[in-house]
Amino acid sequence: MTSTVGDNGQTDGYNFAYLNEQTKRMIRRAILKAIAIPGYQVPFASREMPMPYGWGTGGVQVTAAILTPEDTLKVIDQGADDTTNAVSIRKFFTKTANVPTTTHTGDASVIQTRHRIPEQELREDQVLVYQVPIPEPLRFLEPRETETRKMHALSEYGLMHVKLYEDIARHGHIATTYAYPVSVSDRYVMDPSPTPKFDNPKMDSMPALQLFGAGREKRIYAVPPYTKVKSLDFEDHPFEVQRWSEPCALCGARDTFLDEVILDDEGGRMFCCSDTDACEARQQAGSPDDLLDQAS
């Protein structure tokens, strides 16, 4: 699976997609291992990238390692293609790999994301690459790497439920709203990255390959296509996703994740889709009734 590196796409004297081939091979080996053991965090020798740690270096390295000149890339941050960091990462790959980019989810073969899963269902020929800040779901219960690795190895996940139990005892419901832990293929407990729990159900049996890169923490993990991903819960307090009382003010969707936009300093606010591509597609498809109501 070595990519042919010719003159195409090389700019500024950098190798295709910035990383040298040796590094890409190392990352691909980690990715293959991650796919073979769904949900398991594979340590890899994360490289220093020309953007800061914590700003998507893990996702960027994974994308760089899997990208071919035939790919079409989409980059989103918080669901939007036009947020500054998404723009910056997209430009990086335009410059170093010269691959075509798109904002349309359906047109992309590789989608790098921070904190969201696109609303549009992904296909088998697509790869979703997540940027991950803290890959260890047990980190805030147990700070030590040596201990958390042992807990994963032995499937000692009782502590995870202790936290959920505490939530219910205190609030009457599970109070985790994003980075909501999941069990992958009934084996490893995994952090889905700080996506809202609204997106968790999309991970289950997704036709697309899901790859997760944590650059600063030097971990890669994966959910292969059509793999069971279950959000942790209790039988009598099943997992549920957020719901909004009003539809998107721009496209009228009632089944998407909404961002709140503050309109003035007197409490005026409106809600609209965080996935800008899905929202625009819907707006173009037709102007919904809700939109007219909201606009007045």
């Binding site: 700003w55 941050d77 700080p194 994740f257 709140e260």
Partner: peptide, 9 residues
């Protein structure tokens, strides 16, 4: 960096 989504949650 924006954390709109997490913050919204």
């Amino acid at each position: 960096l924006p954390h709109y989504v997490d913050f919204q949650s």
